[in-house]
Protein backbone atom coordinates (compact mmCIF):
# COMPACT_ATOMS: atom_id res chain seq x y z
CA UNK A 1 0.00 0.00 0.00
CA UNK A 2 1.40 3.39 -0.95
CA UNK A 3 1.66 5.93 1.86
CA UNK A 4 -0.50 8.51 0.14
CA UNK A 5 -3.41 6.08 0.10
CA UNK A 6 -3.69 6.24 3.86
CA UNK A 7 -4.68 9.86 4.12
CA UNK A 8 -8.10 9.80 2.49
CA UNK A 9 -8.83 6.63 4.43
CA UNK A 10 -8.14 8.39 7.73
CA UNK A 11 -10.26 11.33 6.70
CA UNK A 12 -13.14 9.05 5.89
CA UNK A 13 -13.35 7.84 9.49
CA UNK A 14 -15.00 10.64 11.44
CA UNK A 15 -16.27 8.21 14.04
CA UNK A 16 -12.87 7.32 15.40
CA UNK A 17 -12.22 8.61 18.88
CA UNK A 18 -9.00 10.27 19.90
CA UNK A 19 -7.38 7.05 21.05
CA UNK A 20 -7.72 5.40 17.64
CA UNK A 21 -6.61 8.52 15.86
CA UNK A 22 -3.47 8.43 17.94
CA UNK A 23 -3.01 4.76 17.15
CA UNK A 24 -3.65 5.63 13.54
CA UNK A 25 -1.01 8.34 13.56
CA UNK A 26 1.50 5.92 15.06
CA UNK A 27 0.55 3.41 12.37
CA UNK A 28 1.16 5.98 9.69
CA UNK A 29 4.72 6.49 10.87
CA UNK A 30 5.28 2.74 10.91
CA UNK A 31 3.88 2.26 7.44
CA UNK A 32 6.11 4.96 6.05
CA UNK A 33 9.24 3.21 7.31
CA UNK A 34 8.14 -0.42 7.14
CA UNK A 35 8.57 -2.19 3.82
CA UNK A 36 8.70 -5.99 3.87
CA UNK A 37 12.42 -5.84 3.11
CA UNK A 38 13.25 -3.55 6.05
CA UNK A 39 10.40 -4.35 8.43
CA UNK A 40 11.03 -5.30 12.05
CA UNK A 41 12.97 -8.56 12.37
CA UNK A 42 10.14 -11.00 13.08
CA UNK A 43 8.17 -10.07 9.97
CA UNK A 44 11.26 -9.84 7.74
CA UNK A 45 12.51 -13.18 9.02
CA UNK A 46 9.16 -14.84 8.46
CA UNK A 47 9.00 -13.50 4.90
CA UNK A 48 12.56 -14.62 4.22
CA UNK A 49 11.89 -18.07 5.65
CA UNK A 50 8.85 -18.41 3.39
CA UNK A 51 10.55 -17.30 0.16
CA UNK A 52 13.85 -19.00 0.97
CA UNK A 53 15.54 -15.66 0.44
CA UNK A 54 14.04 -15.12 -3.03
CA UNK A 55 12.86 -11.64 -3.91
CA UNK A 56 9.22 -10.87 -3.09
CA UNK A 57 7.73 -8.37 -5.54
CA UNK A 58 4.54 -6.37 -5.06
CA UNK A 59 1.67 -7.36 -7.39
CA UNK A 60 -0.54 -10.19 -8.70
CA UNK A 61 -2.06 -10.68 -5.20
CA UNK A 62 -5.39 -9.15 -4.17
CA UNK A 63 -5.81 -8.88 -0.43
CA UNK A 64 -9.32 -8.11 0.83
CA UNK A 65 -9.42 -7.16 4.50
CA UNK A 66 -11.58 -4.49 6.14
CA UNK A 67 -9.57 -1.31 6.85
CA UNK A 68 -11.39 -0.82 10.16
CA UNK A 69 -12.51 -3.74 12.36
CA UNK A 70 -14.71 -3.84 15.46
CA UNK A 71 -12.88 -6.69 17.09
CA UNK A 72 -9.46 -8.12 16.32
CA UNK A 73 -10.45 -11.66 17.35
CA UNK A 74 -11.96 -12.54 13.99
CA UNK A 75 -11.04 -10.44 10.97
CA UNK A 76 -12.27 -11.88 7.70
CA UNK A 77 -9.66 -12.01 4.91
CA UNK A 78 -9.85 -13.06 1.28
CA UNK A 79 -6.72 -13.54 -0.80
CA UNK A 80 -6.98 -13.92 -4.57
CA UNK A 81 -4.08 -14.42 -6.96
CA UNK A 82 -4.39 -13.57 -10.61
CA UNK A 83 -3.25 -16.86 -12.18
CA UNK A 84 -5.05 -19.35 -14.49
CA UNK A 85 -4.30 -22.35 -12.22
CA UNK A 86 -3.17 -24.52 -15.14
CA UNK A 87 -0.57 -27.28 -14.86
CA UNK A 88 2.11 -24.94 -16.14
CA UNK A 89 0.98 -21.70 -14.51
CA UNK A 90 -0.51 -21.85 -11.03
CA UNK A 91 -0.16 -20.80 -7.42
CA UNK A 92 1.70 -23.28 -5.21
CA UNK A 93 1.33 -21.55 -1.84
CA UNK A 94 -0.27 -18.48 -0.33
CA UNK A 95 1.01 -17.23 3.02
CA UNK A 96 -0.07 -14.51 5.37
CA UNK A 97 2.03 -12.57 7.85
CA UNK A 98 1.46 -9.76 10.34
CA UNK A 99 3.47 -6.98 11.85
CA UNK A 100 2.54 -6.75 15.54
CA UNK A 101 1.05 -10.01 16.86
CA UNK A 102 3.38 -11.99 19.16
CA UNK A 103 4.28 -14.08 16.09
CA UNK A 104 4.61 -12.95 12.50
CA UNK A 105 3.20 -16.14 10.90
CA UNK A 106 -0.53 -16.43 10.32
CA UNK A 107 -1.04 -19.28 7.86
CA UNK A 108 0.39 -21.01 4.79
CA UNK A 109 -2.08 -22.49 2.29
CA UNK A 110 -1.01 -25.14 -0.23
CA UNK A 111 -2.84 -25.05 -3.53
CA UNK A 112 -2.23 -26.50 -6.97
CA UNK A 113 -3.80 -26.79 -10.40
CA UNK A 114 -6.68 -28.82 -8.91
CA UNK A 115 -7.81 -25.79 -6.90
CA UNK A 116 -9.22 -24.33 -10.12
CA UNK A 117 -9.09 -20.87 -8.66
CA UNK A 118 -6.43 -19.18 -6.53
CA UNK A 119 -8.70 -17.87 -3.82
CA UNK A 120 -8.59 -18.50 -0.07
CA UNK A 121 -10.74 -17.11 2.72
CA UNK A 122 -10.22 -17.30 6.48
CA UNK A 123 -10.56 -15.35 9.74
CA UNK A 124 -7.53 -14.06 11.59
CA UNK A 125 -6.60 -12.45 14.91
CA UNK A 126 -5.02 -9.04 15.03
CA UNK A 127 -3.72 -7.94 18.42
CA UNK A 128 -3.52 -4.28 17.40
CA UNK A 129 -3.80 -1.92 14.46
CA UNK A 130 -1.10 -3.07 12.08
CA UNK A 131 0.04 -4.07 8.63
CA UNK A 132 -0.77 -7.51 7.23
CA UNK A 133 1.05 -9.06 4.26
CA UNK A 134 -0.08 -11.77 1.84
CA UNK A 135 2.53 -13.55 -0.30
CA UNK A 136 1.96 -15.99 -3.16
CA UNK A 137 4.49 -18.48 -4.52
CA UNK A 138 3.86 -19.24 -8.19
CA UNK A 139 4.75 -22.39 -10.12
CA UNK A 140 7.63 -20.55 -11.82
CA UNK A 141 9.21 -20.03 -8.39
CA UNK A 142 8.51 -16.30 -8.21
CA UNK A 143 7.02 -14.59 -5.14
CA UNK A 144 4.43 -11.80 -5.17
CA UNK A 145 2.84 -9.84 -2.37
CA UNK A 146 0.21 -7.39 -1.25
CA UNK A 147 -0.01 -5.43 2.01
CA UNK A 148 -2.91 -3.90 3.90
CA UNK A 149 -3.14 -1.67 6.93
CA UNK A 150 -5.90 -2.59 9.39
CA UNK A 151 -7.20 -0.42 12.22
CA UNK A 152 -8.52 -2.41 15.17
CA UNK A 153 -10.85 -0.40 17.39
CA UNK A 154 -11.21 -1.06 21.09
CA UNK A 155 -14.61 -2.07 22.37
CA UNK A 156 -16.26 -0.50 25.40
CA UNK A 157 -17.65 -2.79 28.12
CA UNK A 158 -15.32 -5.72 27.53
CA UNK A 159 -15.56 -8.69 29.82
CA UNK A 160 -12.30 -8.58 31.77
CA UNK A 161 -11.77 -5.24 33.44
CA UNK A 162 -9.77 -6.55 36.35
Amino acid sequence: MADHELEPRLQSMPLLNRRELMAGAAGLVLVSVARPAQARPALAEALRAFSGGAEIRPGKVTFEIPPLVENGNAVGVTITVDRPMSASDHVRRIAMFNEKNPQADVAVFQLGPRAGRAKVQTRIRLADSQMVVAVAELSDGSFWSSEAKVFVTLAACVEDLS
Binding site: Q103, A115, Q121, T122, R123
Partner: peptide
Protein backbone atom coordinates in the same frame (compact mmCIF):
# COMPACT_ATOMS: atom_id res chain seq x y z
CA UNK B 1 -0.57 -20.46 13.53
CA UNK B 2 -2.10 -18.90 16.68
CA UNK B 3 -3.16 -15.85 14.65
CA UNK B 4 -5.99 -17.91 13.12
CA UNK B 5 -9.29 -17.15 14.90
CA UNK B 6 -10.99 -19.50 17.34
CA UNK B 7 -13.31 -21.97 15.57
CA UNK B 8 -11.22 -21.79 12.40
CA UNK B 9 -13.00 -21.10 9.14
CA UNK B 10 -11.36 -21.79 5.77
CA UNK B 11 -12.93 -21.40 2.34
CA UNK B 12 -11.22 -22.59 -0.83
CA UNK B 13 -12.06 -24.26 -4.12
CA UNK B 14 -11.39 -27.41 -6.10
Amino acid sequence: HPAISANPFIAFST
